[in-house]
Design a binder for these strands. Structure first.
Lengths: 251, 251
DNA sequence: CAGTGGTCTAGACCACAGG
DNA sequence: CTGTGGTCTAGACCACTGC
């Protein structure tokens, strides 16, 4: 990474608008760019704070503040005495960051998945809108059922931009898709936003989950974004919430 | 606040277990205690960082780190050039921190409330469990309907420990209950945890919301905690999600 | 202008992990 | 023992607010 171009702590002028842009933000953006480019593979150790500070020509405290921000965004992990590492998409992180279904006793458990269909095709209007795709873009669609504690309780439909995942259709699909995205395609899911509704199950979902059509279910509509903000996945999950609930902390 | 008792950055010994307890954490705890005691009313300005540092006999940077933590918990608000203030429970904060129902276009809007019943009584077993109350404790119960954009879409039942809210029954209840708790009873809601399920509406809720019995609804079960961790409110909301959804960011 | 929080630096020392 | 991140300090200067 090239040294931060000073004038470091001055102002940035954008069309007569003056925006103060602190040094540690510039450092953060630089590191973020390198992360998005895949300069360090998932799990790799970054240079130490001292080394980064020397490379960039700033103080260690400034580097630290930039690293702190990236740790807060779950992109990096610090381990005292060891170093700073690129966050992995292992099951424990997924469980902690992306999976909110909790049993009555408060335990989180990674659900087992059974893939029903994998296919490709042109994106529908809705898929294009949700994933911000061009007119004739292609998508990969995955349909699966997931079980918690042996009980099938999630019927899931996943849509991915085909351009990002060449050859995905031929692969065996693991339980943890985000781990696959990171390892095989270098695409790390950084964050997601979910929209929740209550719906009555349609015939197809009801059959899959072994309940009557019209049973109330929690519909989770998720859009997942990569580090650089690209829309990577659109996922709709229909969940039975008789033995499980969605936990949300308002802090 | 008394000066922080050194040995400040040494260790704390708990039954042969050595726990490192940084100075800024001690400062945070001290400030938190004073906040919970109501030493500064909501909206009040705290002493400046310099003054706090001098009082406590630590450096300004250490005070800053403690204040940063409390700001991150939404208990304090900083305004550059003005000072550091105790967070208010005004509608904009409530909307931002505690209200997650969003319209299709992404707008958040504070719902209008119509109170149907207010009453008191002995806590049921479930109420005692959820609010951690003693055997014969009394509670206040509120039942109301809330409307978004003129449409009634939330049927809500609220349970409060009667001991915390003397005379609440006689009061007119405002739209924003948490503001009332803070202003009239000195109880600030600091955080809450919600459990979401999909349910079929019962007869009473369905009538209130003007839909058929059995209509799927999002059940939000919320437990709200005060700054000191006391359980202050148990609230169950049944929401129609045809024109609105629950937004959850996974970051 | 004075006072507040925000940034940045340089350096010392501590806690922790691993060879 | 060395190297890492974590804490703490002291001081300088900047940006913002309101008088």
């Amino acid at each position: 990474m090239p040294p931060i171009t000073r004038p470091n702590r001055s102002a940035r002028r954008d069309a007569a608008e003056i925006v103060f842009f602190p040094l540690y933000r510039q450092v953060r953006e630089g590191l973020l760019r390198r992360l998005a480019e895949g300069a360090w593979p998932a799990g790799a150790m970054l240079p130490s704070e001292q080394v980064l500070a020397a490379e960039l020509g700033v103080s260690q405290g400034t580097v630290r503040k930039a690293l702190d921000a990236l740790v807060a965004e779950n992109l990096l992990v610090r381990r005292q005495g060891r170093g700073t590492f690129v966050a992995l998409h292992d099951e424990s992180r997924i469980l902690f960051q992306f999976f909110r279904l909790v049993s009555e006793t408060g335990e989180r458990q990674f659900p087992e998945s059974r893939v029903l269909r994998v296919g490709a095709g042109r994106a529908s209007a809705e898929e294009r809108a949700r994933l911000a795709l061009a007119a004739r873009a292609r998508v990969v669609r995955i349909r699966r059922v997931r079980a918690l504690a042996g009980r099938p309780c999630i019927a899931e439909s996943i849509v991915l931009p085909a351009s990002l995942f060449p050859g995905l259709i031929e692969r065996p699909l693991p339980n943890n898709l985000y781990g696959l995205f990171a390892e095989k395609y270098g695409i790390g899911i950084a964050r997601a936003s979910e929209r929740l509704r209550a719906v009555a199950l349609g015939a197809s979902d009801a059959t899959l989950l072994g309940v009557a059509q019209g049973t109330p279910a929690l519909a989770i509509d998720r859009l997942a974004l990569a580090i650089d903000g690209r829309r990577v996945e659109w996922r709709v999950s229909h969940c039975l919430t008789t033995h499980v609930h969605y936990a949300s902390d308002l802090t």
